[in-house]
Amino acid sequence: MRLIKFLAVNLFFYALLKAPGLLAGKPVPSSVITMYMFFIVMTVLLVMTITDEGANGLFAPIRSLLEDPSRALARKVLFVLLPVAAALSVQYLSTDPGPPFELRSAHPAPPGVVRAYGKVYELDGLENPLRALEKENPAAFKELAREGGEVYFRNCFFCHGARLDGRGHYAYAMDPLPMPFTGSDTIAQLKESYLFWRIVKGGPGLPREGGPNISSMPAWENELTEEEVWKVILFLYDYTGNRPRSWKD
């Protein structure tokens, strides 16, 4: 009975750790789950063996399975199944090695200065020059965002998708997947100057900590004009309903 409780408690925690992956699509990394589960199982074991009655209750079914003469058949079945299970798990692990684990920073720290369009941009304090229109002239701002949308659909949409969710036509050929702009955890966490840098310099401009350099994002400085870049940034925020972080907070 206590053995079942022990298994149930551990399964509950395992399910809890698996839930973000199954329900929200944000899996807890398997490396972390392994570590967590190891200590969770240990803790549950400790809590359930504080008293002698508890320990005996927990181990009694196992002991009886191993020692009770009347359960010889179950024992024999177990001793056949155990090595088979071990062999199967080893085979499973060895035939599906998977690509190696990697350490990569998705939002690496930007450089202090970006050189593009023959100018030097100091990213510290850099604002979107078109952002001011949002309050001063909302009609013109809407128009700029619409133009940004045109830029987007001519250039970015193939990877980042029609719904800006990072799932465009080519997206599944990329690894890592293109960044989605929807949701509150990508561009909503960033300043516009950061987007400017990433668009202008692309994957090749990533610093070392962003590597292994596997971002497929091109450097757009030779394709888009400076104004087009700022406009497309306006569009990204406008369309997804996100607000950029400002230098004040």
Binding site: K26, V28, L103, H107, P176
Partner: peptide, 21 residues
């Protein structure tokens, strides 16, 4: 702080930074 991810996990999360962890 730096999570060890398999590429498929990194894909699903969309980067190294995990929203919950």
């Amino acid at each position: 702080h730096t999570l060890i991810l398999t590429p498929s996990e990194a894909r699903a999360i969309g980067g190294q930074y995990h929203p919950y962890l």
